[in-house]
Design a protein around this nucleic acid. Structure first.
Lengths: 215, 215
DNA sequence: CCTCTAGTTGACCAGTTGGTCAAGTATATA
DNA sequence: TATATACTTGACCAACTGGTCAACTAGAGG
């Protein structure tokens, strides 16, 4: 069987397309199947449930983001802080393209799914956390290089990387809410250097108050 | 009629409780009614649709956040930058309490709804944008005061305020995804000063490239 | 040729979705 | 006492939800 069925692939792509544009809950199995031109029975031959399709779509999207955005932006040839700027720039470009086609800023698919499902599906939540960690590790590498190169003061690069991820996700959310891709450029470029510069190690302020309630 | 029916109020509170804990789509009208002990017919006497309930719940939650968090945090007596720190601290405290009760970090209800529905419901999207703008204006006032007090260099306070809102929302999303309220404290306190310090006015870098695709 | 496996098909399921409606019950006012 | 208003009630709706299943088809290997 030269092409071991395109159904799985079509479902994956359809899920990415529809769920990114709307939401997990709003896209039903039926619509997924119609759009992918796959019968429902086949759906459940390839995926045990809708949620498993979403999980697979998450993995696929992460692969794409790594290949299309992160590997390009975080090229080790580029000066460390410049890498962060390029990352924002590539996301900006991408969102401009999507808006030109669909009229909408769709935000970050990982952040969207995390916001919708983190409290309801532990598997999805953990997958998104792993993706966020993956993103953070690209950023942290750049930050470590920036420290080494003296572009930036000594700091807790791990926490700083998380801060940048948070900032990125927040920008994507605001861009989605305002339907304005320009926010990604505006907020990304104007303050990302400040954010990391301001992370200069205060030696992790020695744990003053209450402790988090524990996992 | 001393109490002009508690049904509306009960529905509002139930919507806030259930939708904050899960999502808009996952909470049905039926469940809303059962939980509020209100019959479906009454639901539609008070709200023309589920979406209108969500809109009303959004307004109510914004009132509460203003009263319980923002008015306290952004007290003009407090030194400007300290206000931002207090804001993060209050959100941290709140999320610790919620996690202690429910076992979950629920994130920001406005951000959650924006992520889920911005592309699907223009009314909800615009309401959330107005709320984000409201939040930004508290922050911007603090930033202007901070500039005046010399706590911080001259800057575009409007853009900087948006950056802080983005950062806040991103932190809430990460805290939700990791189910770890500690992130709010850790990321909030360690880098918020850096973020705003780094916004020092580069005179709005004179519009180098493409223009956003337009509303 | 037979069989095994991968994939396909469409009928089927119980439960739920958001929403409607006509009839009823209070209560306040005139 | 009559009437208007505010609210309640439960039956009802078509469409859809995620998911199941047994029968079927097609190609590859023995």
């Amino acid at each position: 069987m030269g092409q071991p069925s395109q159904a799985r692939e079509k479902l994956l792509n359809t899920a990415i397309e529809l769920m990114s544009a709307r939401s997990y809950a709003d896209v039903g199995v039926q619509e997924l199947c119609e759009h992918a031109a796959v019968k429902k029975g086949s759906f459940y031959h390839f995926f045990p449930s809708k949620r498993d399709l979403a999980l697979a779509a998450l993995d696929r999207q992460w692969e794409v983001v790594q290949r299309e955005v992160l590997e390009r932006a975080f090229d080790e040839q580029v000066p460390p802080l410049k890498r962060l700027e390029r990352c924002f720039e590539l996301f900006y470009d991408h969102h401009c393209g999507v808006k030109a086609q669909t009229g909408r800023v769709l935000g970050c698919p990982f952040g969207n799914l995390a916001g919708e499902l983190s409290t309801q599906d532990e598997g999805i939540r953990l997958r998104v956390v792993r993706i966020f960690n993956g993103l953070a590790s690209y950023i942290e590498r750049a930050l470590r290089d920036a420290v080494k190169a003296g572009e930036v003061p000594e700091m807790d690069t791990s926490t700083a990387a998380q801060a940048v991820v948070a900032y990125l996700e927040g920008i994507m959310l605001l861009a989605k809410a305002t339907n304005e891709p320009g926010l990604i450029k505006q907020l990304g470029q104007s303050s990302i250097r400040g954010l990391v510069a301001g992370m200069a190690a205060p030696r992790t302020p020695p744990e003053r108050k209450r402790r988090a309630v524990g996992e």
